[in-house]
Simulated scan of single mutants.
Amino acid sequence: MPIESSAPPQHLDELLALLRENFAALSPQFQGGARYLLDHPQEIPILSMRKIAVDAGVQPATLVRLAQFLGFEGWQGLRELFVEAFRGGPQPYAKRAKKLVRDSGSSRLLAEMLDTQHRNLDLTGANNAESMPRAADLLSAAPNVYIAGFRSCYPIAFTFQYIYRLFRSSAHLIRGDAGTLEMELRALAPKDAVVVVSFAPYSQEIIRVASAAKQAGCRIVALTDSTVAPIALEADCTLLFSVDSPSFFPSITAGVAVVEALVEQLLAKKGKGAIKALELAEGQLHQTGAYVQARHG
């Protein structure tokens, strides 16, 4: 990591790469500021340093010291890299939704929630335009794909495995039922791919899955809320989804959208083979009575 007298990064990509590479070695205060810079670069040119500090959960002086630690004279020098990168580009996405207002009416609450989900999806789409095809290539090349997500992330992982398995039998869900997580992780082998899903606060189980995948020589795809999430720091590919919500609990809507989009690309890559497998799966489901038969007449 550069020291205060070092020459500062000259381009935004260089700065962001430096922060990702050295994030684990930063102090907790610096990590708070660095996380915001990495995850919300589009907001740095338009927000005041004080507002950024509030959103990042740090003191304004921390941002100044972080900039100096990176070799800048002060915050303005660091901020200028973001301004230059976004000058002439698309307009930044809307700010996060306002906090829940106790006296708001039900129609207001619904409008806030839907508006936030729209922004979550817009931001998620912008963040994954380049990484989504890489993730599809990585998973398509793997002999087996394992998917893990625990607690509130379980629906995301289950949705991905359920849909993907309709045309790929070698897609497996890691569940860890009845304390069997370690037994399931023994199946991981080199060249397999492991998809890990989590957002802050990150579960201990997902860290264990990611560590086991790395030790086994698997490729790792992280679906998470931050480029410096524990599961993202050593992942081969990271897909980001926004969890903003005006309610009391983070939203998983954008996470489900990410896995649906990823399955769409995986199906397209496999082509006719996927269509044949999908037709077979649908036929079997109907024949075994999985669906209610439509009544005629």
Rank of each mutant, 00 (worst) to 15 (best):
S5L: 08
P8Y: 09
P8H: 12
P8S: 11
L12T: 02
L12Y: 01
F23D: 11
A24Y: 04
G32E: 13
Y36N: 00
L37I: 03
L38A: 06
P41D: 04
E43C: 01
I44D: 06
P45D: 14
I46S: 14
M49A: 14
V54M: 07
V54G: 00
V54H: 05
G57N: 04
G57V: 01
V58W: 00
Q59A: 11
P60M: 05
A61W: 00
L63F: 11
V64W: 03
Q68G: 03
G71N: 01
Q76F: 00
L78I: 03
E80W: 00
E84N: 06
R87S: 13
K95W: 00
L100R: 12
V101Y: 06
S104D: 15
M113S: 13
L114T: 11
H118V: 08
L121D: 05
E130P: 01
I147Y: 01
F150R: 07
F158N: 13
F167I: 02
L173I: 13
R175M: 09
D177N: 15
A178C: 01
G179N: 12
T180W: 03
T180D: 03
M183Y: 09
A189K: 15
V195W: 11
V195R: 12
P201M: 03
A213S: 09
K214H: 09
Q215E: 12
A216Y: 07
L223K: 05
V228A: 08
V228D: 02
A235E: 10
T238Q: 00
V243C: 13
F248D: 06
F249C: 01
F249S: 12
S251T: 08
T253P: 06
A254H: 03
G255F: 08
V256Q: 10
V258D: 09
E260L: 15
L262C: 04
E264A: 15
E264V: 01
Q265I: 01
L266Q: 10
G271K: 07
I275T: 04
K276Q: 11
L285H: 09
G289R: 12
R295E: 15
H296S: 13
G297E: 15
